[in-house]
Design a protein around this nucleic acid. Sequence first.
DNA 1: CTTGGAATGTCAACAAGGCTGACGTATGCT
DNA 2: AGCATACGTCAGCCTTGTTGACATTCCAAG
Lengths: 169, 169
Amino acid sequence: MSDGRAAQVYSGESLLFLTDEQLRQGIEAMFFAYRGFTADPDRILGEMAYGRAHHRAVHFINRAPGTTVNNLLAILGVTKQSLNRVLRTLISDGLVESRIGTSDKRERHLFLTETGLQLEQQLSDAQRARMRAAFRDAGPEAVAGFKQVLEAMMDADMRRAYVKLRDGV
Amino acid sequence: MSDGRAAQVYSGESLLFLTDEQLRQGIEAMFFAYRGFTADPDRILGEMAYGRAHHRAVHFINRAPGTTVNNLLAILGVTKQSLNRVLRTLISDGLVESRIGTSDKRERHLFLTETGLQLEQQLSDAQRARMRAAFRDAGPEAVAGFKQVLEAMMDADMRRAYVKLRDGV
DNA sequence: CTTGGAATGTCAACAAGGCTGACGTATGCT
DNA sequence: AGCATACGTCAGCCTTGTTGACATTCCAAG
């Protein structure tokens, strides 16, 4: 179960950072930080008729314009029905454009409209501002560690998606 | 709005870690990592009739046994109606005990029962296992940076709550 | 060339878990 | 005595996840 102490005993190095206490701290840090992470966009979204799901969709469509619904599904990790509801409102509100695929007409390729781009900017500006403040406070080495731990925490599938986006498709 | 480039220009130091590109990476890392973070407990909870909300309640009651409802409310950042729904099921299922306060009889002090402790163990074992693997992969310095950035990302209230829990009430 | 299966996307209905608002009860404090 | 506080509850709403059923399109095997 909890091998923090065991690891400590069996190793010459200081593995104090792997104690259950340290792990619990990490868990609670993730919990509280994620709240801060989503707080600013949530506030903006609350004023419109949108939610966090809309934010995610808009974010990733902006990141990979022309992506298909299936693609987006895999990245967001929700069912197509769930995503579809969100996309439907975004499309009918004129934030997202859905173009039928040219080679495969079953596919829909998604793009942000001018209005969609504006919302994306507004949301990501807010979120980046907080991230920037945190990065600046913590410094470049801390940021490197931050990313390293987060990457190690992802499921393998998500790590692939993350790296792919990071390094440019 | 996005002052990453501006900061770069105005400073002698390398502030490349504050570019919009780096910030976006941080944002996506948070998104994907949080999914991994909750994945294991979610799987366990899915098999019972419980959800993430129950996990959070159980976690913090375990962390601060005897805490009051109001206290828990502040930490979880939800409404009492929302929390109450969760607590009601946990109490009636015999995982949580609610004792009327001795000094102030309006308060209810919350404790985990034996069964409640078992569930908490099961959930936190799963979550710690992933955190431990990530910490081990990344190493102690990365972990320090990880915590530093997360702490800087919290709202002030949450940072207070986090530090209080971390340093022992 | 046809046809059946796989892939893609849409519609409908339901559940969890947020939220607000209103109210009741018990207790504490001035 | 009367107001404030802590808690519980009912009702009703919204977002966002789920499953099931279904239409369209593509492709490959016969």
